[in-house]
Amino acid sequence: EHITKHPLQNRWALWFFKNDKSKTWQDNLRLVTKFDTVEDFWALYSHIQLASKLTSGCDYSLFKDGIEPMWEDNWNKHGGRWLITLAKQQRRTELDRFWLETLLCLIGEMFCDYSDDVCGAVINIRAKGDKIAIWTREAENRDGVIHIGRVYKEHLGLSSKVVIGYQAHADTATKSGSLMKSRFIV
């Protein structure tokens, strides 16, 4: 019996970054694999470490095929990110759930007409606090950015009291953390 897999709208690439200070940033970034069906997504997800089990300094990135997980990529350079910053104790309680919900939002194209604005998502495992972000293509596209932020926040199950911010990569690249201003909040 022939069983047809369920195709995704996009082919996605999973990247893994492991911080090795003896190598360049780009050498530390490795493409793990690409997939374009629901079934192949789960095969990959169940095969790799949960984000909460990674060591500090590691990242996973999931980007549309053809977009590299860096600001400099042509698809990213005018864009920005909806950033979720987690407190240390949330690694144990919420990190893996938030990351899975993020992945499902991406592969399911859950941002309706604005899904084309999405480039990918990144999770950073860091001792001082983990971060998850959805990257979009155009920081000036207000309607798209706001819609994506609202839908994302809803999928994470964040209360209306929690505020998340959108930062343009151009600002992130030039300003230090304390000066970082959010272009939008939801």
């Binding site: 069983i3 995704l8 095969a43 499902l104 399911g108 194209e109 859950m110």
Partner: peptide, 20 residues
């Protein structure tokens, strides 16, 4: 049309065996 899947649909496949 666009291939859009909601969360519950995607989760239904999480523990499905790859081959039946």
């Amino acid at each position: 049309g666009k291939k859009q899947y909601d969360r519950d649909f995607l989760l239904d496949f999480q523990f499905m065996p790859a081959c039946i």
